[in-house]
Write a protein that binds this DNA or RNA. Structure first.
Lengths: 194, 194
DNA sequence: CAAAAAATTGATTCATTAGTCAACAATCAA
DNA sequence: TTGATTGTTGACTAATGAATCAATTTTTTG
């Protein structure tokens, strides 16, 4: 039997509209009416399917994380060595998938949202943890006890580059960001363990 | 003649209240009434002195930047060499002055606000530019042509560490953050120019 | 002191928006 | 076809909060 499809299609449209709006305005300070409008449905329907504005935004975030996760996994699958895997992770962070206009803005907004929304915080925590352990396990065979520290540094650097990218005033390109992150990685791998 | 003092005192109290509230809630999603309440004045007075909520928030940001700038300058004054100056800048970023509870949250919120407020963007741009050129000029004699790239990387790393610090889920301390940033700096200085 | 200026209030206005709801439309199953 | 289920609307409500303003108190000054 064909399961109810339209519901899923609509939910998807609403999520995409939410992401687009977050990207456009650069914040989660958005109305449900506007999201519904972009999705081409009534505000009533958006509430009907998601229950609340917060749930729409959380769904949007989950979507972004899913896309990101899939991208990373694809990169990892193609890699043989720890070095390659680390580079694949870094490259994924700045890949086009994760750079639809406004995605960086969305990330920023989510960081803020995580300050007061338990659900958002939980979601962000999962992301943090996954990235961290992914980096760490691949760093272990290369830098030993420094793995933890290098992983935190690399993850932070990536976050910081995202901020710089989302900032209109700066003139950093995704390619620049990738180069910087990869440069840091290589430098960390070749550094003598003091 | 004694210049009008009370006005300045009140404005100051309101700004401090705004910073406190941003820190407490972790966002700029705050009411003027609440800020006024914390400052111990009426909402009318807050509007009277600042004209709008946005102006209050921008003033709060300006205050934070001022404190930060003074801290950096103090550190620089005590330093003789480029190396020392670079370390002083990094240390200032994570010094107690800039770590009154909630300041990290405030930063995050301002990044978001800069997406849609021209005034906030301008202010943030000034900060970015100043930090960048401060780092760059001190890096120049040490790493030559790599100065620009290292400066961007270091500034981004600092931003990223701020995010990690503002995130409740993470268990990073300001000291950890300082160590990581300083570690990166030293590593960059000792790296062979490939 | 008296008049002017500065400081301050809080009630009010006006706009916005999240969420609800009752009704209607479309689709499907028997 | 008919009845049930699913999809959909938009008007409504209730709340919130920014900004205004006329009125009041306090301070300054001549």
């Amino acid at each position: 039997m064909p399961r109810t499809k339209i519901k899923d299609i609509r939910k998807n449209e609403i999520i995409e509209a939410a992401i687009a709006e977050i990207g456009r305005t650069g914040s989660t300070d958005i109305t449900v009416a506007k999201i519904a409008d972009v999705a081409g449905v009534s505000s009533g329907l958006a509430h009907h399917y998601f229950g609340s504005k917060e749930q729409i935004l959380i769904s949007a975030m989950r979507r972004i994380l899913t896309i990101f996760g899939a991208d990373v996994r694809k990169g990892l699958a193609r890699s043989q060595s720890p070095e390659q895997r680390l580079e694949a992770i870094v490259i994924s962070c700045f890949s086009s998938q994760n750079f639809r206009p406004g995605i960086t803005n969305a990330w920023l907004s989510f960081y803020v949202q995580a300050q007061y929304s338990k659900d958002t915080e939980r979601l962000l925590h999962i992301y943090y943890h996954r990235l961290q352990s992914n980096l760490k396990s691949n760093l272990k065979p290369l830098v030993g006890t420094r793995a933890e520290e290098v992983a935190v540094a690399l993850a932070s650097l990536i976050d910081g580059l995202y901020i710089r990218l989302s900032f209109k005033g700066g003139n950093l390109s995704p390619d620049d960001a990738t180069d910087i992150a990869l440069g840091f990685l290589r430098q960390s791998l070749s550094a003598t363990s003091a």
